[in-house]
C-alpha cells in the first residue's frame, strides 16, 4: 500500500507534460483484487507440432479494468497466449471462460460476436495503409455488421460521430482524412487504439504495442492504455519486453518462461530474483533500459 501511494505522487509531479494524464484518485486507490473476474483461463495448452509445447498448463484470471502485462523472453509464448484469448490461434486444450461461456468451442457467428468484445492492437499497427484514418477506425465496427453493410461502408451517423469522438480523444483529429501511410509510428498506433475502442470492447489485447516506437511515443501510448483501463473500465492486456515499462504501468504482471507462468502478482513484488527467473541469465541486460 505504501509503495502504491509513493508511485502515485510521482505521477502527479510530471503534471507539466501534456501527455501525462492525472487519473482520478478513487480509481487509483481501488485494490486490484476487489475487481470482478471477467475471464478465466484454465489448463490452457498449445502445441504447434507434437514436440513443440509453446504453452504449458496456463491458469490465470483476468479482472475488470486492470492493466495486465505479460513479460518474458522472446519465444516464451507471449504472442501465442494473447492470440488464444481471441481465438486467432486455436488452443490445443483447456478452457477460456468469458461471460459464463467457454469460448474455445465457439464457431462462426458466435466467434465473431465474441471477437467484437475483444479489441486488439499490434506491434506493426496492422492498418490498411492506403485508407484514411477515419476508414481504418470504422473498421472496428465490422464485427457488428453483416457482410454487405460492411462492404458498402453503411455506417450510421451515430457511429461516425462516435468514431470522430474517439479520434479526437486520441489527439489525431487533424489527420482524419490522411492516408495511414502518411502518419508517424505513434500516430498509427493511436489509430490502432481508436479502431479497438470503437468496438466498445471489454478487453483490449496489445501485442508489443510499443516495440517499434521511440521512447517518447512509447510513453504516450502506454499513458493512453492506462487511461483507457482507468476511465472506461476496459481490461488491457499488454505483451511487453521492457520490464521497467511493465512495472511502471501495470496493475499486475505475468511472467512467462518457456510457455509456463512463473510469476503472477503486483508489480511491487517483482524484484531482480524474479526477473532472473523469467528471463534466465540474460536478465541483467533487460532490466536496464
Amino acid at each position: 500500500m505504501a509503495t502504491q501511494l509513493k508511485s502515485r505522487s510521482k505521477v502527479t509531479e510530471k503534471k507539466a507534460d501534456p501527455v501525462i494524464f492525472n487519473f482520478p484518485e478513487e480509481a487509483q486507490l481501488e485494490e486490484t483484487i476487489e475487481r470482478p473476474v471477467i475471464m478465466q483461463v484454465k489448463n490452457l495448452h498449445k502445441n504447434y507440432t507434437k514436440d513443440t509445447k509453446v504453452l504449458k498448463d496456463i491458469n490465470f484470471d483476468i479482472r475488470e479494468g486492470e492493466l495486465l502485462s505479460i513479460i518474458g523472453p522472446s519465444g516464451a509464448g507471449k504472442s501465442t497466449l494473447l492470440r488464444t484469448i481471441n481465438r486467432m490461434i486455436e488452443p490445443t486444450s483447456g478452457e477460456i471462460i468469458f461471460g459464463d461461456e467457454n469460448i474455445t468451442k465457439l464457431k462462426g457467428k458466435g466467434l465473431r460476436k465474441m471477437r467484437t468484445d475483444i479489441g486488439m492492437i499490434f506491434q506493426h499497427y496492422n492498418l490498411v495503409d492506403r485508407l484514411s484514418v477515419f476508414e481504418n477506425v470504422l473498421h472496428g465496427l465490422l464485427g457488428y455488421k453483416n457482410s454487405l453493410q460492411g462492404i458498402l461502408s453503411l455506417y450510421s451517423e451515430e457511429e461516425k460521430e462516435k468514431a470522430l469522438e474517439i479520434i479526437t480523444e486520441l489527439g489525431i483529429e487533424d489527420h482524419i482524412y490522411k492516408r495511414c501511410d502518411e502518419l508517424s509510428g505513434g500516430q498509427k498506433q493511436r489509430v490502432g487504439i481508436a479502431r479497438a475502442l470503437i468496438q466498445d470492447p471489454k478487453i483490449i489485447l496489445c501485442d508489443e504495442p510499443i516495440a517499434s516506437l521511440d521512447p517518447r511515443a512509447s510513453m504516450v501510448i502506454m499513458e493512453y492504455l492506462k487511461r483507457i483501463s482507468r476511465e472506461r473500465g476496459i481490461t488491457v492486456i499488454v505483451n511487453l519486453h521492457q520490464v521497467d515499462v511493465a512495472k511502471k504501468y501495470s496493475d499486475r504482471m505475468i511472467g512467462l518462461n518457456a510457455g509456463e507462468i512463473v510469476f503472477n502478482d503486483a508489480p511491487e513484488v517483482m524484484d531482480q530474483g524474479i526477473v532472473t527467473k523469467i528471463y534466465g541469465s540474460k536478465a541483467d541486460e533487460l532490466i536496464v533500459e
Binding site: N86, M88, L111, R112, K113, M114, R115, T116, I118, G119, M120, F122, H124, Y125, N126, L127, V128, D129, H139, G140, L141, L142, G143, Y144, K145, N146, S147, G150, I151, G192, R195, Q199, L205
Partner: peptide, 19 residues
C-alpha cells in the same frame, strides 16, 4: 497484417477481402 486486424474485430470473409 491488415487481414489479421480485421479478423480480430470479428469481420466476415467478404469484409476482409473488400476492406
Amino acid at each position: 497484417d491488415s487481414i489479421e486486424a480485421l479478423r480480430a474485430t470479428g469481420a466476415t470473409y467478404p469484409q476482409m477481402i473488400f476492406k
